[in-house]
Write a protein that binds this DNA or RNA. Sequence first.
RNA 1: ACUCCUGUAGCCCAAUCGGCAGAGGCGGCUGUCUCAAAAACAGUCAGGUGCGGGUUCAAAUCCCGCCAGGAGUACCA
Length: 852
Amino acid sequence: MESRYTPAEIEAKWQQTWAEHQLYQTSETSDKPKFYALSMFPYPSGNLHMGHVRVYTIVDVIARLKRMQGYRVLNPMGWDAFGLPAENAAIERKTQPAKWTYQNIDQMREQLKQLGISFDWDREIATCSPDYYRWTQWIFLEFFKAGLAYQKEATVNWDPIDQTVLANEQVDAEGKSWRSGAIVERKLLRQWFLKITNYADQLLADLDKLTGWPERVKLMQANWIGKSVGAYLEFPIVGIDEKIGVFTTRPDTVYGVSYVVLAPEHPLTQKVATSDRVSAVEAFVQEVSGQSEMDRTAEDRPKRGIPTGGTAINPFTGEEIPIWIADYVLYEYGTGAVMGVPAHDVRDFQFATQQNLPIKVVIAPPDQPISDLKEAYTEAGTVVNSAQFDGMVSTEAKGEIVAYAEKQGWGKARIQYRLRDWLISRQRYWGAPIPIIHCPECGAVPVPEADLPVQLPEDVELSGRGGSPLSKLESWLNVPCPSCGTPAKRETDTMDTFIDSSWYFLRYPDAKNDQAVFERAKTNDWMPVDQYVGGIEHAILHLLYSRFFTKVLRDRGLLNFDEPFERLLTQGMVQGRTYKNPTTGKYVLPIDIKDPANPIDPDTGETLEVVFEKMSKSKYNGVAPGDVVDKYGADTARMFILFKAPPEKDLEWEDADVEGQFRFLNRVWRLVSESAESLKTARSQDLTKPEKELRRAIHTAIKEVTDDLQGDYQFNTAISELMKLSNALGDFPEKTSSAFAEGIKTLLLLLAPFSPHLTEELWHAIGQPESIHTQPFPTVDPTALIADEKTIVIQIMGKTRGTIEAATAIADDKVALEKFATDSDVARRYIDGKTIKKVIVVPGKLVNFVVS
RNA sequence: ACUCCUGUAGCCCAAUCGGCAGAGGCGGCUGUCUCAAAAACAGUCAGGUGCGGGUUCAAAUCCCGCCAGGAGUACCA
């Protein structure tokens, strides 16, 4: 065989052989248990980056391991192919989005294949293909039939750069678009929504079922859903036959209400204003609405508001209280109006102090007298100044007061969510058209199932400006109404691309079905996904939407499970070495650095800061996967990525460490190829002591690697175990021993999921006829793990004083060990002449003497 | 401001139920090879676990209080 390790040759060879033998095709007709391994599918930007390499490598190791462990594994791949970049690229390059996208897909598929990932390419999907979006549209119509898709005029987030609306989830805390980074504007538009709020409670409650998810992702979703338990209460307006409804989580403080506040956008603002105040109110509302969301919610800015002159009545006390308008009340949340209880709410306290509004204490702190409040008291306490509720504990008063309000017709218990309905219409071309026809007679009519897909027309003029491109295409736009035949118009908005990705995992089990969205039996068989791997950036967006879709489709009778993803692994970023000028903040190209040990700005001569940051073009810190594969091979790239950091942590790309992995694979190569011939004639006889020790090392490695891959996928420590085994084999002199042969085979089998090409080559080199990837994963022989002797730690007063060797039978027996240890030289040296007060014995590990 | 995560050797990272702080890699040093160097190979060096308390026979691990870095949320009534 080849004496040198030449990854380029063997990797190409085996990739071709595997493809010819369809080694990774999903087996469907088997009684093996199923395992669905899934990586979040990529957007086909045209270039694979290291982040991709990391996810797919992680999933590939899991898929390969599970196959060897006897599972039938589904490990599919596809493309999240709709979206704005294609449209923008098409405008720039004067081409069609479809053409650009499919070219990118071809390019990325090739790059992926070079990594040796065991995808079942027969199930490949692209969301922009009519075969796929036909069913996206079909699912939309399922939502429509269920009353979960509706149109509404609403103030929505408008991205001025991308020229489209966005969902709340797609706008970050600073009011910026997740894609373009532009500050979003608020616009009143008629848009399509999905009623995710109907499922708010289930989406929250079922988080408890997701025991295989990271806590922080669940926490983020719970916060996003934002459940608040409280009450809806109504305050009649003096002089008008209308009421102001408020939502509060503190009905127990209702006797302390000293004013009510409306959000500036509230429809009642003009009505409640007294004639002398109307113009001031109008001016205030104008001013606030002219401000961006940013300004309005900026940190520590004072609350602003004005009285309307109008008054309302607190039904509980009969008191007349002023109605104010203030910018700290959000129209989007609750009823857009709040009751002001300055004594027991931090914001109300601040506002009331500022505006000289009365502060009335109704909850007394347990042990303190009610004195002048310096700040709001928001804890529980004893109810005071609250008529018949006086003396109650405030937490109990909540229920009583709500019950009383309900009896009096003043309000009722209410649960409020922060979650809003999902805005899904986009005024762009490259997405799945919403399959609706607007008829002047019948309204919004669904496109009949037989007419799906509503195809995207190809002869379209793209400019990126002035509304949906589809609205300008008369031939496509005008159709007869499917139900009455009247001339009607198609819906011109396309769907948010997050819709496409909210169900793709349901399609893989039956990816080529052209009769139905999927065969229920197949999807129910493979789902839920056993292990999902992807970036933390989807903690809310994609993962919440997918959970929502799953629940709706379950309720439509299509699925028989509640949650789509059993276990979730969120992998960390891949960071590159970045040279940054500390004063200007500018990034410097690595090739401009003369001495990496002492990096200096070539322009200014300043010493540069060396940091690891997420790889990106603008930071000049990217490493191209292709370059690494060319230089070291895919196996080395895979090993490095898995070894350098635990999967959920950020990974710092260091060339020196890549070389370390390359060296390791070379060592394995040499170790196996040097002994390949003698292995074939390995003799078997009674084991010598060194052979027994080697077997113990072999089976310890099996145990450790299996454990590392069982629970939390600790690839880094698994690889270090493989290095240990490799070292032990290298040190072992008897290359013709059967124990050595067992060790070599075990090493290759354990390494196979990590370095599929190298192990396949060596597996054949030692005379094995079948593919290593179809072999069973090694299992532990418990008898091989038993050592004849164990090292026992001797401690005196908790301090280690030495160790003793004890026969295993003694070491594992508490009584025998105590005696053995007490008689040992080490112990005697320290306990002679002292009284033993207590002896702590940990069998197999240590003996600790407490002496006086 | 609040919540969560992370601080272990020069660096990346390990350490079952609390039980000898170290598995692996990088780097450094020494050697082999070489005219020399690089590469490769072999050997070797390394801190008491961010800080201060506490619990315990025993703490990197558990508890309390700080410090540093990162992430998320941020008037949600």
